[in-house]
Nucleic acid binder design. Structure first.
Lengths: 349, 349
DNA sequence: GTGAAAGCGCTAACAA
DNA sequence: TTGTTAGCGCTTTCAC
């Protein structure tokens, strides 16, 4: 190692081989261990004088509390497990960022798991994470493999599901209705007078819900069934391009409007349209879903159904914090919070 | 809580109020606690027969090992702290994803901290995280506030710095030279015959290094000093647009080529150029840095200096794993791995 | 191949 | 306001 073991006079404890403990601090400060503990966790119970001595001692020997030991003794790890399908998508990234921020401010660390939209992954991550005794768990989506769900229902760890709505949450839910998103997209396009539709959708749980809402609303309105291109997860720009290319090649007539399950796909659709000299939105309207910042400045402008990833993250984290602090019993029932979404029109540049 | 406390016959331990422990397993299996521990951690030392009985017991009572206790006793938490400036940027997101994946496969969980490019944040995150006794730490960048650095040098926790190169790493380093990236950009543009330059750069540590490399190389070549627009972090699409707009408004003549510290900024530059009927690359060349997938399909195509975020993450994680497993002493010196970068030309559509 | 004893570093509960 | 006594649930010796 490049690091030199300098003869730092303060390093007496670190040279002794093991990290200084609370007992070391207590000795230096001339108090009992529990007083040191109190200075750290409930300073109000300790006299000014003792606090001073203890803090001085902590600085002097470079003491860092061992939270493994603390967690074991107090049965509270001050960690939250967060499981998301991906962070490569800017909107989930915003949510993750907001969650870690909010939790960090409240003194909780975030244990991150990325499930890649795989049940098996999610299960393994949970398995691994439960052993750490997290004080709370935040999960993306409302579908979870049956055994995972059961495990979570039995645990008394507060669970927040987010990014979706469901009639039977495990515990607490902070999200919005993807079915409604799809319906809103269809309603919007129908109101604009469009009648010949196509759809490019990813095939993950929530994208499929949106698509179903979209298709169902169209069916109810009695318009022709749209051509649908389903693309694999994670949705990449180029998949949108390929998706619409296939649709346009096989379509018997012109397409009025294209529904995309995400802005990323919508972007690909737009570029392909541009290649083919199809003007947007005059020749073909495009509606996306997700992160407005992206589509707002991409030319030509498209209509987007916008959700605020950061806001969802913040609210999910706050719901969890409330849950964790509401006494540790299951007395308080978990709630459902609908964060909603907004349709953002950007027809004219 | 919505969850019903069902009269599940197996839930005898969970209804008893506390989670089953290793001792509970031992009783059911008719062995001593240490045997249970061995089945979990060193199964080779235990007879087939005993293993069977223990595993059966574990399933029966739904035992989940308490890693807080395990970590305390074994002085190894099997957690790694990861501190990044942001994940809202797809390239860092890839790195984070690769790191968590690689570590998870090796049985380590990732404790995520997001520093928002703030020293103070980074410090607090580290402070908070050190108490969890992580087995390793992965940090973004090579600059760290002096006190953070000192703290880390004294610790015997393996540290991997990534996403940059430096002559004096704390321990191990996996990254590439940002100065060289800037130089390569300048060399590339100069070779194309460009002479009147502009630059739009973010103002974080590494972006500034790239910019400096770019400017220095131009200065050495004796060309006029470029107009530079520095934009705040995190770089958003629109900042690129505003940056180049300001430059074009104040420039006394045409600009041959624009250097951008990231593809996100480059995208903004391109859109603004499009608005002003400046053709790319014929009228004005643009070079970016970061994630090829983004710029490759954005029209018009630009040249990008590409780094593979996932690859960097994987290598950083593997370096850390090697470090953590190389006996716990500081015997093995930390190494420096240069992951390099590539110049991707996309001049013609 | 298995077990008994002794902590890991901290905090809960009670007492003074 | 402070301290004492017992653990938290596991792994490390070391013994058999």
């Amino acid at each position: 190692m490049t690091k030199k073991i300098t003869k730092n006079p303060r390093a007496r404890k670190s040279t002794s081989g093991r990290a200084p403990t609370l007992i070391d601090v207590a000795k230096v400060a001339g108090v009992s261990p529990i007083t040191v503990s109190r200075v750290l966790n409930q300073p109000d119970l300790v006299s000014e004088d003792a606090q001073q001595r203890v803090r001085r001692a902590i600085d002097e020997i470079g003491y860092v509390p061992n939270m493994l030991a603390g967690g074991l003794a107090s049965r509270s790890s001050r960690m939250v497990a967060l499981i998301v399908p991906t962070i490569a998508n800017s909107i989930f990234a915003e949510t993750v960022q907001a969650i870690t921020d909010t939790l960090a401010q409240a003194g909780y660390q975030t244990l991150l798991g990325i499930s890649a939209y795989e049940d098996e992954q999610e299960k393994q991550l949970l398995e691994a994470v439960l052993g750490r005794r997290p004080d709370g768990i935040i999960l993306t989506g409302t579908y979870h493999a049956p055994d995972i769900r059961k495990r979570l229902e039995v645990t008394d760890v507060p669970v927040v599901e987010t990014w979706d709505l469901s009639p039977d949450p495990i515990d607490t839910l902070v999200g919005f209705s993807h079915t409604r998103v799809g319906e809103a997209a269809a309603e919007y396009l129908l109101a604009k007078g469009h009648r010949r539709f196509a759809a490019v959708s990813a095939n993950d749980q929530r994208a499929v819900k949106r698509l179903d809402g979209f298709l169902q609303t169209l069916a109810n309105a009695g318009v022709d069934e749209p051509i649908v291109a389903k693309v694999p997860t994670p949705a990449r720009f180029q998949l949108g391009r390929e998706g619409i290319a296939g649709i346009l090649d096989q379509a018997s007539g012109p397409i009025d409007a294209v529904y995309c399950s995400s802005d990323t796909l919508a972007h690909g659709v737009m570029v392909e349209a541009q290649q083919r000299n199809i003007r947007i939105p005059q020749d073909m309207a495009v509606i996306g879903f997700g992160d407005l910042d992206f589509s707002e400045y991409t030319l030509p402008p498209i209509t987007t159904i916008r959700v605020n990833g950061a806001e969802i993250g913040r609210r999910a984290a706050m719901a969890l914090l409330a849950r964790m602090n509401s006494g540790d019993s299951n007395a308080v029932p978990g709630g459902v919070i609908d964060t909603g979404f907004a349709v953002i029109e950007r027809e004219s540049a």
